[in-house]
Design a protein around this nucleic acid. Sequence first.
DNA 1: CTGAAAGCGCTTACAG
DNA 2: CTGAAAGCGCTTACAG
Lengths: 337, 337
Amino acid sequence: MVTMRDVAERANVSIATVSFVLNGTKRVAPETRTRIEAAIEELGYRRNVVARALASSRTRILALLHPDLEARPNATVIQFVMSAAHGARERGYDLVLWPVNGDEQMSHLLAGGLVDGALLMEVQIHDPRVDRLIASRLPFALIGRTEDEDLPFVDIDFVTTIDQALAHLRSYGHRRVALVTQRTKAPSGHEPGRIMRVESAYRDAMAALGEPPAVITVAGTSAGGREAARALAEDAPEATAVILVNEGASAGLVKGSRELGRSVPGDLSVISASTTAELGEMIEPSLTVMAAPAPQLGRLGVNALIDQLEGVQDALPHILIPCTLVPGQSVGPARPS
Amino acid sequence: MVTMRDVAERANVSIATVSFVLNGTKRVAPETRTRIEAAIEELGYRRNVVARALASSRTRILALLHPDLEARPNATVIQFVMSAAHGARERGYDLVLWPVNGDEQMSHLLAGGLVDGALLMEVQIHDPRVDRLIASRLPFALIGRTEDEDLPFVDIDFVTTIDQALAHLRSYGHRRVALVTQRTKAPSGHEPGRIMRVESAYRDAMAALGEPPAVITVAGTSAGGREAARALAEDAPEATAVILVNEGASAGLVKGSRELGRSVPGDLSVISASTTAELGEMIEPSLTVMAAPAPQLGRLGVNALIDQLEGVQDALPHILIPCTLVPGQSVGPARPS
DNA sequence: CTGAAAGCGCTTACAG
DNA sequence: CTGAAAGCGCTTACAG
């Protein structure tokens, strides 16, 4: 292994000077710099990141705290992960996967000194991980929000997303629009913040329109989607359209409706929000989708975190981006009532 | 920050002794050990992983070299990633995401000293990443295989998978079965090994059955699936069933067939191999699937790598696991010809 | 502009 | 069974 010492010897300087040119931390005479750069090149030298981390107490490693992804459709989560990995790499950081199941994982994260900061996905309304991060003073950024919106976050703008979905449906004559959200195994208060925010955005919008709301909550699976179809038919038969914020249930909802003799979009128009167009295309008919800004949010989250670490930030980042409408074939004119 | 020195002082021993009990590397008198453990507990000490890595030249970090995942369905890849992350954590290792796009990323990996080993996904028949890993002597394990099967790998047993899929179809009376595989942007020889292996397993099996093969290669997208449906109808009209090894094209194939007036499974039976049951359920009709053993393979791959690092291995691991048949509604009796 | 030296927090022969 | 000390490969005040 070629070390900084080797480079220093070949260039006839001290290792300190080598370090200065490598990091650009101090000015170095042009000839000296050239000599060092030549030596680096000739020896194929690459700085040892572990030694650097120990000496500088900065590892340039970030943790990505993510939920356990299951086999069910997870297109948006994948986009978060991938865009975060790329964003980190572009700024010279590495991203380590940190599946958090309990306290043991958090201790390893906080006390081991491996990471400079953490990026949290699937943030809960009241998130114990956030409490522990704050207590330990490890820098972090959220993809999503807790109750406390003073923390650095990037998130989907659900208010605008719901408003646009409703506007789209209303342009087709729909007035009674139901909402299908996701049920999780998490105890109350620990659901992803998204679920609460979507529901309240929907209720506000419906109230403003003077229409009665109808909210159905089901698991994020095909079976959940079928359950939603049944609940719609039985409990909200007057709804001619539905906004779905439940990626995993979208296929089941359409299949279940058809099984109940309700065609999409003939009898029921469907918009699936916070998902990807590719997933919508898998379904028959292709779903009209509000595509999640996941590719942007992963990057923005990483950048918010790194800015914080490097002291670049002016203020705490509070970034909200709405989903984008991608029309498919699942929205049609409201059936006359 | 509480260091080993703090623990040593409180327990009235040297830091060497603390290190010995922490690592179990040398026997320590029971009373001494108890004293040290108490001190660790009281101080809430946790070993600094960076210092440990520098001193021991083992970082206990593994790199997961993965392709760029796009928005299209990627259920099996996700299962690989998640099970690898869990497997690593269970053995005390961390997993860092390593999207490899070019040589720059490989250099960073090989020379930076950050990782003890690498796990490769989407291995190509001739994979330049493998060449570089071998040259650099960084330990690695493959999820998939290159041409050279002497390297440590875990992979799907495509021969058995294809045989079982064919047997299932033949039990429904199908004799002419086509294969749909995936086209990639990669130059020839650099496709994922899977594609070549699936095709040759299929050709061998069809030859053994005395039936003519028909192979169609399309992109892993909905549009690709539609293209496959068209090609099947035009170029292989005698095929009454198709085995699909192209997760992203599955939905498009079914939708495209229907658009051409061919119903599934009435006119065409479909088995989607190397995917997940959950994805199959999203489609109408629910696809009969050969579920990929992705949750096992991620773990097995990590374990193979760690065994190698820790010298536990007896021999190079060459592990093959077939997919598992999960019946759906996309296979029916062959139409009379 | 450059260097000698301390130090980051551990592990690990080597002595005793 | 335990300790003193060298060393892992860097960064960073401090001197000059």
